[in-house]
Amino acid sequence: MKKLYALTALLLGMMGCSEETITYTNPVPGDEPSGIAAELGISSKNTWFAAEDERNASIGFKSLGGEVVVDIQTNTTWKYDAVNAGWLTIEKDDVADQLVLNCEGNKVEEQQQATITITAGDKTATISATQNAYGTLEIAASKNNFQIPAVGELTAEFEVQSTDEDWIFETKDCPWLLLEQQGDKVTMTLDPNEEIEDRETTFVLIAGEGGGEIPSLKRSASRRTAPSTSTFR
């Protein structure tokens, strides 16, 4: 019994001598773990967004205003800084890693300009944003590419924004496509495609004497097994 007691005391003593204090420090936002290089890229599906490369781009807002969502590709936290952006509303979405830029209609007869810089670690990306001056002749479609099946739902629509209230559209002679305008909305109705070849056409929106954006339309041909869908360009 004495030997067992002595052994137990010795083990407890050894355990007591091996205690360590571990201190955890929360990382400062923006600091990078040692050895990990920051990555950064920007992109957008909006046609007003023009990329020069992965980290430099420009956005050309219409005088009527609008919204552009910029996707931020990075492996770390990021922030942004804006210069001369009083005409812009900018929202940072940390969940989706997006920067949302909005502007109202331009009320002055001069172009608005701003620069937005995005920083992630030691990497930066730059967006040059402009907005057309008040009174600029312009026209834009809410969508300019369409995907229509050979059969089934054969209608689609889009809205038009223009500084010319008397804008019009022109299209080639196309017996399988009907375009109807009601206010600022254009509705497309198509005939079923029973051929084995795809159908494709384009039409032009016109404001003043010049042409605007050109919505394009490509129809898919029907197949005897199952109708396929088209790819719009």
Rank of each mutant, 00 (worst) to 15 (best):
A37R: 01
V83Q: 11
R223E: 05
D166A: 07
S43A: 12
T124K: 03
L190W: 09
A120V: 02
G66R: 05
P227I: 03
W87L: 00
G41C: 10
K185D: 00
A38S: 13
A82P: 14
L10H: 03
A140Q: 13
P215M: 00
T202D: 11
T124P: 08
G65Y: 06
T25Q: 14
G183E: 08
C17P: 00
A37L: 06
S128W: 01
E39Q: 13
E165C: 03
T25C: 03
I196T: 13
E170A: 05
T171Q: 13
F158E: 02
N26A: 14
S128G: 01
G105Y: 13
E180W: 04
E165G: 07
G60A: 02
V83W: 04
E104G: 10
A6C: 11
E200P: 02
E165A: 12
G13E: 09
F203A: 02
Q111R: 15
P29F: 06
T117W: 05
E165S: 15
T225D: 11
D198C: 13
I168M: 11
I206H: 05
P227R: 00
S18I: 08
N84K: 15
N106H: 03
K92E: 15
V28L: 15
G212C: 05
A9D: 04
T23K: 13
E209P: 03
E157R: 05
A156K: 12
N193M: 04
P192K: 07
E39T: 15
W176H: 05
L137R: 06
P215E: 00
A133E: 02
V28A: 10
V69I: 09
E170W: 00
F203H: 00
L88I: 02
V160R: 08
E165V: 13
E213P: 05
G152H: 12
M15W: 02
N84W: 01
L64M: 10
D164M: 06
T126S: 11
L4G: 03
A6V: 12
I214S: 07
S220A: 15
M14H: 09
Y80W: 08
